[in-house]
Amino acid sequence: MSAILKVDNLHMQYISGNRPLSVLQDIHLSIEEGETVAITGPSGSGKTTLMGLCAALDNPTSGEITLLGTLINPLSEDERALLRNRNVGFIFQNFQLLPSLTALENVMLPLELQGIRGADHEAVQLLERVGLKDRLTHYPTQLSGGEQQRVALARAFINKPKILFADEPTGNLDGDTGSSVELLMFDLNKDFGTTLIIVTHNQELASRTGRIIKLKSGHIVSDEKNVPSFTIN
């Protein structure tokens, strides 16, 4: 197996009130294809910043990030957009569906961005897979939180991503709904053979991944293999 994501000597600094604020320091990590990884840590430890950088959503202050064999630091915004669109999937805590698009249209969006026509067939199949066959033409406001996150899951997998970033994917859901969404996410991940990186506070969710990276004050304090455990509430 080869590294799908490689981070070397990563530093991230913001300017806050005219003073530099170091958010990430000296981060080194390598994630192999097909791995499931949880990045955990207390609030302000730099989890979301690390994910944003790894997903080519932001530029680091220093250090190198290689995603899918491509060094992303020198890439232009357009090149990064293309990289994300073809290879990366996202799941967010607050679902991030476009409110003016129906469930089906939201799911089709990444393929349409690639210029693929007739993406509705695949989108319908995926929505069926996440149990929303009857909700194709519903707008996000007409769906429950769990349903919205399932639409987001379908959207995340429609472009058959090589790597999926999930930011607190069950953070906005109640226990039961959260668990079923988790299950669905891991199932889809397995089916599509995607590398999964989850940012979470939730230790139970983290325990379902094969590797747990703990962050504290911008440093990696531990990076350990884990035997995934599944319990359904």
């Binding site: 957009a81 293309l82 669109n85 991030q96 476009l98 969006l109 990444p110």
Partner: peptide, 9 residues
């Protein structure tokens, strides 16, 4: 979000 999903600026 559109940008995140890969839409160019």
């Amino acid at each position: 979000l559109l940008r995140c999903l890969g839409m160019k600026p």
